[in-house]
Amino acid sequence: MTDQAASADTLVELLEAQQALVEELSLLAARQPPLIEAGESDGLLALLADRQRILDRLFGDQERISQLAASLDHPAGRLGGEARARISRVAAAISGRLSQIVRSDEEDQVLIGARSQRASRTMAKLDTAKQAHSAYLRSRAVSNRFADRKG
């Protein structure tokens, strides 16, 4: 086996490992919207921590992959068509899935923004609730409004 072929095999292995990680990321990303909708921020943070661990592993192999990918530039003809096809297939799958996760993350950011606005509105409504609560009390005519006994 030539060096080039060995590199191609290693690259494919690494890319397949990356693909498995990306699939895991994708599964986690799919669990985000219901958590956001339910306001389960603790669950979301735990999920994002899991994602971060996977991302760390993903980034861990990036440099090696870049090096191997660069070595493909060498005598081009030596890389077999089958190896090229495998690398291309896996890389395309990874890229596609990653784009999907990025899009879903962007949608989730919009969802979180809406959830946050709902929380703000709830806080603003507290005033109304308090007014309703005290509405049964009759107004009293007093001269020293809000002065307690000590002033």
């Binding site: 992959i65 990918a69 090229r84």
Partner: peptide
């Protein structure tokens, strides 16, 4: 292939 690898990297 190179373009695909770049795309993986960018994404």
């Amino acid at each position: 292939l190179r373009q695909l690898m770049r795309s993986v990297n960018d994404t």
